[in-house]
Computed example of a mutant assay.
Amino acid sequence: MSFFNDAISWAREQIHATAPVFIVYRTDGDSLPMTATKGASDFQAEAGDEYAAEDHTIDFLVNPADLVAASTSFKPKAGHEIDELDGEGGNVVATYRITALPGVPPWAWSGQSRAMMRIHTRQVGDE
């Protein structure tokens, strides 16, 4: 592993160690417990007639290696859900649905190294 890759791995570990959010990523048939870092994204798109529409998502930054179900890695899809757990990692405090905005996929690589994946969501429930 190169120095650059070692540094990225170290940085990812530091982010998860200092600001972890415990989540359960839910597909149609699997529930995957993992840690993430919570963030947000703002988007602006032309809505026509010289007006711009703004949109905001709650994002979860995850290690893409954690997205494995039935021994197969996968990419986030609109409609999958994420349950945010309390600090103890046991009780659901909020539920988010992965969303794809017009012209924006439901996830993006975070940074040039592709060491983290940013998943765009909207909150759909409080527990």
Rank of each mutant, 00 (worst) to 15 (best):
M1D: 04
M1W: 08
F3C: 06
F4D: 15
F4Q: 11
A7H: 03
S9M: 01
W10M: 03
R12P: 00
R12S: 08
R12N: 10
H16M: 09
A19T: 15
I23E: 07
I23K: 04
V24M: 06
Y25F: 11
G29R: 11
D30V: 00
L32K: 01
P33F: 07
T35V: 00
T37F: 12
T37I: 08
S41K: 09
F43M: 06
F43P: 00
Q44G: 02
Q44M: 06
Q44T: 14
A45S: 14
E46Q: 03
A47F: 01
G48N: 08
D49W: 07
A52C: 14
A52L: 09
A52T: 15
D55T: 07
D55S: 15
H56R: 09
T57I: 04
D59E: 14
D59N: 13
F60A: 14
L61V: 00
V62I: 15
N63R: 11
N63Q: 15
N63Y: 08
N63L: 08
D66N: 13
L67H: 11
A70G: 13
S71C: 10
T72Y: 10
S73V: 12
F74V: 03
K75T: 12
K75Q: 09
P76V: 15
K77E: 15
A78R: 10
A78Q: 03
G79N: 08
H80C: 13
I82Y: 08
L85C: 00
L85W: 04
D86L: 07
G87C: 02
N91V: 14
A94M: 05
Y96P: 00
R97L: 01
R97I: 07
I98S: 06
A100D: 00
A100Q: 02
L101S: 10
P102E: 04
V104W: 03
P105Y: 03
P105N: 12
P105S: 13
P106F: 12
W107Q: 07
W107Y: 14
W107R: 06
S110C: 10
Q112F: 14
S113M: 10
S113F: 02
R114F: 13
M117G: 03
H120C: 00
H120D: 05
T121Y: 10
R122L: 12
R122H: 13
R122F: 11
Q123Y: 05
Q123I: 05
G125H: 06
D126I: 02
